[in-house]
Amino acid sequence: MNLLFIADPLEHFKIYKDTTFAMMREAAARGHRLWTCEPQHISWRSGGRVTAQAQAVTLTGEAERWWQAEPARPLALAEVDAVLMRKDPPFDSEYFYATHLLEQAEREGARVFNSPRSLRDHPEKLAVMEFPEHVTPTLVTRDAGEVRRFHAEHGEIILKPLDGMGGMGIFRVGPDGLNLGSIIETLNRHGASTLMVQRFIPEIVAGDKRVLIIGGEPVPFVLARIPQGSEVRGNLAAGGKGVAQPLDPVDRATATAIGRVLAPRGLLLIGLDIIGDRVTEINVTSPTCFQEIQQQTGFDVARTFVDALEGAAAAPR
């Protein structure tokens, strides 16, 4: 198959842990041809098809210069067997516009994973609100008064921006409410921006578990991202320690229930964040942790993913 990866610049990849690289390596090992581009390389001319200035890429097996690329050329997205949207957040206006171009490419015959419509319809913080039975008490608002009332009700809370990633902009406020007003002003920009507030989950000390769902089925291992020192965030980007663990029965049931709802919407790969037994986020843009799980358990997540990708790309429309 010809596979087009829409991603961040290849020179920014940390291949010892990058999930997109793991996907590419597994696909190349099976003989699939790899193409890459960035979102800004996609265009659509009236009367024509959605096209990317894409490079055919060969993996070298080396640690430093790990790829070789042919000169970029126009490639209609409908010409390849599968398009993988792997651009990291933030989900800003340009990302939003890219999903519209990708949806047009789908109308022209392209197979895009994850579905661009579902990427738009499932913002990673807000998507949890569809599943209240699995979520800690949560509030989405831009109103400072509502945040204060939520804090008064629950005592200890977490506040976060809707467009953050990697633990960016997450605050914990205790029962004393210290700095709550300043934090609200920072996150909601004096009422101009919406934020999310959740009841603090003390089980964070055991880790923020990344549970992967591929083709609607949970991966049998998770990566628990454990906060270090006085840090409340377990995100690896915030210094958390990643420890792979078997998927427990409670989290398996949660992931199975959510996967059965979301996978039919074109979400081939989903990453749940679970603290204790509560889902805190549903990641659909570029879920990670493939390599950390494989390195610690031997379970080849990339192989499972490419199996699912091949099946989805070949399935009748």
Rank of each mutant, 00 (worst) to 15 (best):
L3W: 14
A7P: 08
H12I: 13
F13M: 13
K14S: 15
K17Y: 07
T19G: 10
T20L: 08
F21G: 04
M23Y: 07
M24Q: 04
M24T: 02
M24H: 08
E26R: 10
A27E: 09
R30E: 04
H32M: 14
R33Q: 14
R33M: 07
W35F: 15
S46M: 07
S46R: 08
G47C: 03
G47Y: 02
G48P: 06
R49T: 09
V50Y: 10
V50C: 03
Q55T: 11
Q55V: 07
A56V: 11
A56R: 15
T58I: 07
G61E: 01
E64D: 12
E64G: 07
R65H: 13
Q68K: 11
Q68S: 09
Q68T: 14
P71C: 00
P71S: 04
A76L: 03
L77N: 12
E79I: 12
V80F: 15
V80C: 15
V83F: 15
L84G: 08
K87M: 09
S93P: 09
Y95D: 00
T99E: 00
Q104A: 03
E108P: 02
G109P: 12
N114L: 04
S115C: 12
P116E: 09
L119E: 01
R120M: 08
M129Q: 14
E130V: 03
T138G: 05
V140K: 13
R142A: 06
V147G: 08
F150D: 14
F150C: 13
A152C: 04
A152F: 10
A152E: 15
H154Q: 12
I157A: 11
D163E: 12
M165A: 00
G167L: 00
M168N: 02
V173L: 11
G174Y: 05
P175N: 03
D176P: 00
L178D: 11
N179K: 12
I184F: 11
I184G: 05
L187K: 05
N188D: 12
H190D: 01
Q198T: 12
F200W: 15
E203Q: 10
V205Y: 02
G207Y: 02
D208C: 04
V211W: 01
L212C: 02
I214L: 15
G216W: 11
P220L: 07
L223N: 07
I226A: 01
Q228S: 05
E231R: 01
V232T: 05
L236C: 07
A237H: 11
G240W: 02
L247K: 13
D248F: 08
P249L: 01
V250E: 13
D251V: 03
A253N: 06
T254D: 04
I258V: 08
I258E: 00
G259H: 02
V261S: 08
L262D: 00
A263F: 09
P264L: 01
L267V: 08
L268T: 05
L269I: 09
I270G: 05
I270H: 00
L272M: 08
L272K: 02
D273F: 04
G276S: 04
V279W: 04
V279C: 07
V284Y: 00
Q291F: 03
E292I: 09
Q294N: 11
Q295T: 09
G298I: 05
F299E: 05
F299C: 03
F299D: 11
V301N: 10
V301C: 06
V306R: 07
D307Y: 06
A308G: 12
A312D: 10
A313F: 15
A314H: 14
A314Q: 14
A315P: 10
P316K: 15
R317T: 12
